[in-house]
């Protein structure tokens, strides 16, 4: 081998066009997909809705990957990272969908032209422009709390996505259909852990009950429709979050009771603070970690 560095060798192996590992730039995930918005759908609303669903996935992905190098066992580290990777893929598609209808907020003013919309949205929006629910931004806590949150988040998202397969926006419907089997794996994985820990040792039971008690109040943020969701539900594009409440409650109750855990009282629901861009300081810290490199070196390729 005559190349100067291992990167040159990889570059050479890939035809010498400046590529190594997974390339010098990530392709736009909707490349070649027909992104025409069907008549009767407001593009601004559609983009705003895709930001909600995309930000949920992006932020939860970042939380899950915080377990890499810190999970209780290697297999679990791989499992949580894989769940995060699926969510990152969903986030990329949804943020790209938002970008395709021109919903970019203030991000485009900060990002250079060569940065695709999905990356501009992920890396160059400030915290008040994020539309994720409070459920996904809360810190991980211990492993017991992490699997409880993953159970709640994947149960909720799976219930939404199963219905969104019928969305009048064909792009959103396709993203949802692709996500359903992925989220089914996440939910089943989290549910088995909650069973194992809740119905395990006194210490694992104590910790997973504490995780349930910490996560439960965040359910209050999930089930009240924003104006965007109300309009898009009427247009056959979105799902009214109130419509998935019973399914989510039934699944969570079933798992927690089987795990011998106490199901807390359902919290008083309120208009979503997360969907309104009202986030806690934990999200600011998470975004600093997520966005730091891109903001420091906006033209970097790797």
């Amino acid at each position: 081998m005559h190349e100067e560095t291992v990167y040159d060798a990889l570059d050479h192996a890939h035809g010498g066009e400046g590529q190594w590992a997974f390339g010098t730039g990530f392709d736009e995930p909707l490349a070649g997909v027909d992104t025409t918005v069907p008549t009767g759908i407001d593009p601004a609303d559609l983009g705003a809705y895709c930001l909600m669903l995309g930000d949920d996935a992006l932020v939860l992905c970042q939380r899950l990957t915080q377990w890499v190098t810190a999970a209780p066992e290697l297999e679990e580290e791989v499992a949580l990272a894989n769940c995060g990777l699926d969510l990152l893929g969903q986030a990329r598609l949804l943020l790209a969908r938002a970008g395709s209808v021109g919903v970019l907020g203030r991000s485009r003013a900060l990002a250079t032209d060569s940065i695709p919309d999905e990356d501009a949205l992920a890396y160059f929006r400030d915290v008040d422009e994020f539309r994720n629910s409070l459920l996904v931004e809360a810190p991980n806590g211990d492993f017991g709390q992490t699997v409880v949150r993953l159970l709640v988040a994947s149960t909720w998202r799976l219930a939404l996505f199963a219905r969104l397969r019928e969305s009048r926006d064909p792009v959103l419907a396709a993203i949802a259909a692709k996500g359903v089997p992925e989220l089914t794996y996440h939910r089943d994985h989290a549910a088995r852990w909650v069973l194992r820990l809740g119905d395990g040792t006194p210490e694992s039971h104590r910790r997973s009950q504490a995780g349930v008690d910490a996560v439960w109040p965040l359910l209050a943020d999930l089930f009240t429709a924003t104006d965007v969701e109300t309009r898009l539900t009427a247009a056959g594009v979105a799902v009214d979050p109130a419509d998935v409440r019973d399914e989510v409650r039934d699944v969570l109750t079933l798992v927690l009771e089987r795990a011998t855990l106490t199901v807390p009282a359902w919290p008083a629901e309120q208009p979503s603070r997360g969907r309104a861009g009202q986030h806690g300081p934990e999200l600011t810290a998470l975004l600093a970690d997520l966005q730091g490199l891109a903001r420091e070196h906006p033209a970097a390729t790797w």
């Binding site: 066009e17 997974f22 990777l85 893929g89 969903q90 992925e182």
Partner: peptide
């Protein structure tokens, strides 16, 4: 050429695309 991702987050799509073009 039309390709479809295996999983939403499949990181190999970009390489597949480049390999097909090459």
């Amino acid at each position: 050429v039309e390709i479809t991702p295996t999983y939403s987050g499949c990181p190999a799509m970009g390489v597949m695309r480049a390999d097909l073009v090459h």
